[in-house]
Amino acid sequence: MAATVIGISGAISALEGASGAMSLRVWMETHREELLKVWDGRRLDWQALCGWFRDAGLTNSIGETPTVRCAKMTWYRVGKTLEARRQRHADAAAAAERLAEEKKAAREAAKASRDAEAVEAGALSQRMQEADRAQSYATAQRIEVQEAHARAAVQRQERAQQLAASAQQSEIEPSDPSEFITLDLPVLEGVSRRAYLPVDPKLPPVRKGDINRATGNAWQYGGDLPGYPSKRNYEYEKNWLRDVGLLLRHRHPTNLTMTPEEKFVMRGAKSCIPNLY
């Protein structure tokens, strides 16, 4: 066998050389569409065509020269075959297009699903952060309320102790006025007469934090100083601070000789008497 016919060209030559391979049907399948396009819808002259088929050596499937009837039947069958072939090609193309559309839709659906999952994950993360912030705020509020309750409890206890101390003092039977004592204090300008009122020696000195029975407020600037007017004779602490501050400055020209308690009271007195140095 020659080398030139070993490839696909050899196979084509073998098919074309077989019985009926170059038959009328093969020619019609190859040239039918082109002939119809050129002839542009005019009626075919089958007598003339069959003469040309005979001269060209085109035969039917059994190797005979085609008659007009045979040529027409072959032409009709070739049309059906070509139409079926075009339909198969169209169906295959439509199926391929549908498959491509389905793949595209699947990719878009997968992307939309991923996007929706990402949005949902972001929303979930935001809700979790908001829940954490709300929990932290609630915890802080709870701690603040607990601390407020604890401070209130301490204040109630201190108040109860002050009331108990006041009650204890009120239970002391006062002395006879004839037993009252008057402090030996210098008479100074600016010191009110309350500083020189006699006091009951049975009553204990007023302490810092005790309740002023006249105002209901606690005394803030220390307790009674020995040798100085008692707070019992005063309604307002600023009046007591002014009198005691003047007496302190008269007795101590400088703070260096004062006791710590006297220095504390002097600091409060200076807020009432700006020129008290």
Score class of each variant (00 low, 15 high):
residue 194 R to H: 08
residue 213 R to K: 12
residue 214 A to N: 10
residue 161 Q to V: 14
residue 128 M to I: 03
residue 58 L to G: 00
residue 123 A to N: 10
residue 54 R to E: 08
residue 27 W to L: 01
residue 86 R to G: 02
residue 71 A to V: 02
residue 195 A to W: 08
residue 121 A to S: 09
residue 83 E to A: 14
residue 260 P to E: 08
residue 116 A to T: 05
residue 237 E to C: 03
residue 263 K to R: 15
residue 158 E to V: 04
residue 134 A to P: 02
residue 106 A to P: 01
residue 215 T to M: 07
residue 101 E to S: 07
residue 240 W to E: 06
residue 72 K to R: 11
residue 174 P to E: 04
residue 101 E to D: 08
residue 114 R to V: 06
residue 50 C to V: 15
residue 145 V to E: 15
residue 29 E to R: 15
residue 173 E to S: 01
residue 170 S to M: 11
residue 152 A to E: 15
residue 199 V to T: 11
residue 46 W to Y: 14
residue 252 H to M: 09
residue 6 I to K: 03
residue 11 A to S: 06
residue 84 A to G: 13
residue 165 A to Y: 10
residue 117 E to K: 03
residue 107 R to T: 13
residue 180 F to S: 12
residue 2 A to Y: 11
residue 49 L to E: 09
residue 249 R to D: 03
residue 161 Q to I: 06
residue 187 V to G: 00
residue 21 A to Y: 00
residue 209 G to E: 05
residue 118 A to Y: 04
residue 178 S to L: 08
residue 249 R to F: 03
residue 93 A to R: 11
residue 2 A to D: 08
residue 1 M to F: 02
residue 219 W to D: 07
residue 220 Q to H: 08
residue 207 R to G: 04
residue 131 A to L: 12
residue 173 E to R: 06
residue 267 R to K: 10
residue 26 V to D: 01
residue 82 L to K: 12
residue 262 E to G: 01
residue 165 A to K: 14
residue 131 A to K: 10
residue 97 E to W: 08
residue 181 I to R: 09
residue 185 L to G: 05
residue 240 W to R: 05
residue 268 G to W: 10
residue 111 K to F: 05
residue 223 G to I: 09
residue 160 A to Q: 15
residue 22 M to Q: 13
residue 268 G to N: 07
residue 243 D to Q: 03
residue 56 A to E: 02
residue 131 A to P: 00
residue 170 S to T: 04
residue 161 Q to R: 15
residue 163 L to P: 00
residue 163 L to M: 13
residue 276 L to G: 09
residue 137 Y to A: 10
residue 90 A to S: 11
residue 233 N to F: 12
residue 77 R to D: 13
residue 104 K to F: 01
residue 146 Q to T: 05
residue 197 L to Q: 06
residue 95 A to P: 03
residue 273 I to L: 14
residue 143 I to P: 01
residue 42 R to N: 13
residue 86 R to V: 10
residue 59 T to S: 04
residue 256 L to S: 10
residue 95 A to I: 13
residue 111 K to M: 05
residue 103 K to W: 01
residue 208 K to S: 14
residue 122 G to D: 14
residue 260 P to L: 03
residue 134 A to G: 01
residue 138 A to H: 08
residue 222 G to I: 02
residue 44 L to D: 02
residue 164 A to G: 01
residue 12 I to P: 00
residue 58 L to H: 00
residue 140 A to H: 01
residue 232 R to E: 05
residue 88 R to W: 07
residue 41 G to S: 14
residue 114 R to I: 05
residue 254 T to C: 01
